[in-house]
């Protein structure tokens, strides 16, 4: 029965990856990668029970947080063009300007 769950998750990841490849906007791609991340968490959790190694759950736990931070970081990069300005001052937000 874990096999069924793992196969279902893998099919979902494939569908999400197809969406990430076909775009059309960059936001679609980020959303699809967010979905892949969530599915990966579930995949790790199911795999932990599949192989009866419950310590893998810690990795799923950390992956949950990293997935969120990753999405936020990529969004910030898309919006500002860099990761070091704080985003408060609008003149720093132009993605074309990168001489700072």
């Amino acid at each position: 029965m874990y096999t069924v769950a793992i196969i279902a998750i893998l099919i979902t990841i494939l569908l999400a990856l197809a969406r990430a490849l076909s775009g059309p906007t960059v936001y679609d791609r980020i959303a699809a990668m967010n979905m892949v991340g969530t599915k990966t968490i579930l995949l790790i959790a199911v795999y932990a029970f599949f192989t009866d190694r419950h310590d893998l759950l810690d990795i799923a736990l950390v992956y949950t947080l990293i997935n969120f931070i990753g999405v936020v970081a990529v969004l910030k990069l898309i919006e500002q063009g860099n990761l070091y300005t704080d985003g408060e001052s609008p003149e720093d937000n132009q993605p074309e300007v990168n001489d700072k």
């Binding site: 769950a5 279902a8 099919i11 569908l15 999400a16 969406r19 936001y27």
Partner: peptide, 22 residues
């Protein structure tokens, strides 16, 4: 629960392709 969850995941994946915009 596991089978239903897997089914919902696949349905969500199909929805990613059926819906028209972001």
């Amino acid at each position: 629960c596991l089978v239903l969850g897997g089914l919902l995941g696949v349905i969500g994946g199909i929805g990613m392709h059926r819906f028209p915009d972001f």
